[in-house]
Design a protein around this nucleic acid. Structure first.
Lengths: 218, 218
DNA sequence: ATTACTAGTAGACGAGTAA
DNA sequence: TTTACTCGTCTACTAGTAA
């Protein structure tokens, strides 16, 4: 993403363009970005072209609002800043153990994923996942984790079915090595799936509704 | 500040360039910024020219570190992101009342400041300030406040002495309207000066060592 | 007032290359 | 290998101006 795009997006966001449309003429944007009205107008057209903003072009003044894609772009940059200024290389997530729907188990058990987990995480996962519903106030931490590199797990196709790319982040739960797995294209899921060498419910004697703490390495 | 500079600065910061020198060739930076080695080399020279980074140019590989000015630049951007994603238009500072050194009183009492306070804050300040030592864990909130616009108080010269520019941020302390005043060029001061219509020590019955909470409007 | 086109120009970029 | 110069190209900008 070009830095000049995010620079303009940020100015629009500061004026409230995330929540709702903001009245913003090309001259005003030009002043904020220290460029001419003409260039600001062009920049707006580019942002529209990239689908980072949407516009309501009235007769007198245009109103601009960020698209979800535009907000995501800024969130990613925000995550980078948080990693620069806040992170001590570990983020602690809090949540509650929940019943999985068997989906996690199905995915993790695919040989195409298993071999990659073993190679990149250093352990062979137990054939199943632990589902944690992350506390509301820790959801923004997920954004930071998402913006961290982690261990990339490639997607593949098997029996005509596509298994998408995912990122595994090495973690610890009560001192036990594990990893949280986040599908590449997931959007604002408040559940994380944990893979671990052991059967965590048995090993830690935890069950649905129990509170747990996951320390994620950044 | 040009967005292309901060973009490069952020990449260097992510590699650890705030804490210490990082080994970073122009080719590596070019890859990170999606530009050629030549352009990245030029960008580094520009950053040096702007005194945003310093460099240790060894025979084999250069080592780069952000200057305090470079770090400030990023902090300001970080503050903008926090304002976009975190702020509900009020920041609460916690701290302890401390004995001022009479400086605050001297400054505030200058007619050049007084008239501006009255005009921009909507009250005529009591002739003195309340000094609060801000808690360690709230210092990063000061950075956000510094990055907020606030009410600009112009500097002036009187009797051959220069009184610098400052920013006043409207606040409340125990429901009483007041403002914190931050000198424009102050650097990481953990003390804020509060101006108020009333004598706060008397009105609130507070004295040195008492804990207080200041709600700063953003 | 607006937005945004065209045209001319300054500056950013990468290829080639020296040290 | 490095860094960073010169130089040609092309993009990105602003001024002028139309709608």
């Amino acid at each position: 993403m070009d830095s000049k795009y995010t620079f303009a997006l940020r100015k629009i966001a500061l004026l409230g363009g995330i929540e709702d449309y903001v009245v913003l003429s090309s001259r005003e944007l030009g002043d904020a970005l220290e460029m001419s009205q003409q260039s600001a107008s062009k920049r707006i057209l580019e942002l529209l072209d990239e689908k980072l903003i949407i516009r309501d072009l009235g007769a007198r003044k245009q109103r601009i609002k960020l698209t979800p894609k535009g907000v995501d772009e800024l969130k990613q940059e925000y995550g980078e800043y948080r990693r620069v200024f806040e992170i001590n290389d570990q983020i602690t997530l809090h949540g509650v153990v929940s019943e999985g729907m068997g989906e996690g188990r199905y995915y993790v058990c695919q040989a195409g994923y298993m071999t990659q987990f073993e190679e990149k995480l250093g352990f062979k996962p137990y054939e199943g996942t632990l589902n944690i519903v992350i506390d509301r106030e820790d959801l923004s931490k997920l954004d930071i984790i998402r913006s961290a590199p982690g261990e990339s797990i490639s997607g593949f196709t098997q029996d005509g079915r596509t298994f998408g790319q995912a990122i595994a982040h090495k973690s610890k739960i009560k001192s036990i090595d594990c990893a949280i797995v986040i599908p590449e294209r997931s959007h604002y899921e408040n559940i994380v799936e944990i893979v671990c060498q052991y059967h965590l419910r048995r090993t830690l004697s935890i069950g649905n509704g129990d509170r747990v703490e996951i320390k994620v390495k950044i």
